[in-house]
Simulated scan of single mutants.
Amino acid sequence: MKEVKIESVFQVYEGILELPEDLQELMQKAIEARQKAYAPYSKFYVGVALLLDNNEVVLGSNQENASYPSGLCAERTAIYYAGAQYPKAKILKMAITAASQLRTTLEPIPPCGACRQSISEYEIRQKSPIEMYFMGERGKVVRSYSLSNLLPLIFDKSQL
């Protein structure tokens, strides 16, 4: 038996204003997307802004419905739209923000497991990392240089 240690490294910014100006703008677009979320059941609103290598910015927000589990998270809404509209473009950066009507979200909120798996598919497909920035409603912003930093033991097509 051999023990293996896996570490993740993140950078933590005290707030949006500590980010470089281009990332402040991207996060602001994610905040605007969050305000368009449709979350009447969970009251949890998420917005995403993706920066593509063709300089396009793609937005996404979570979309719920009465058949609660069949809604779609903001991250997947955005990356699937990017994949459908700009299939040859690479996703360079992803800004994520989440807020709740039930309480103030001050801690950074990372993507859920299903979104991590989907983002992983795009990193593998484009053969380059997606830099991710995530936050709550306000407060600290966390940077991960890649999805593989959040999900180090990925399941991918090589295992099929």
Rank of each mutant, 00 (worst) to 15 (best):
I124M: 14
T105E: 13
A37D: 11
L26W: 06
D22M: 07
R103P: 02
Q117D: 09
G60H: 01
L106V: 08
L26H: 11
K29C: 00
P87I: 00
L150V: 04
T97V: 11
G136I: 08
P111A: 15
E14S: 11
R34T: 04
A114S: 15
I124K: 15
L19M: 03
E56H: 11
E18C: 03
A95I: 08
Q11L: 12
K157Q: 08
Y80H: 11
L150E: 13
S120T: 15
N65L: 09
S118K: 08
Q28M: 04
L92R: 08
R125K: 15
I6T: 09
G113D: 09
Q35G: 01
K2R: 09
A66W: 05
I130G: 03
D22I: 01
K5V: 02
V46G: 12
Y133R: 04
P152L: 00
L102Y: 12
G15A: 04
M1W: 00
V48C: 11
S128N: 03
I79R: 04
P129S: 13
S120I: 08
S61T: 02
I91L: 06
E107T: 12
P110E: 09
G83T: 06
L72H: 02
A89K: 04
R116M: 13
D22K: 14
E14Y: 03
A39W: 13
S158N: 14
A33C: 00
K29R: 11
L19H: 10
A82N: 08
F134H: 12
E123G: 05
G83Y: 07
F10P: 01
G15N: 14
L52M: 05
E121Y: 09
T105G: 06
P87H: 02
E75K: 06
I124T: 12
P110N: 05
N62W: 08
M94G: 05
K5A: 00
G71M: 07
D156A: 09
E18R: 11
A78K: 04
I91A: 03
Y145F: 00
K157H: 12
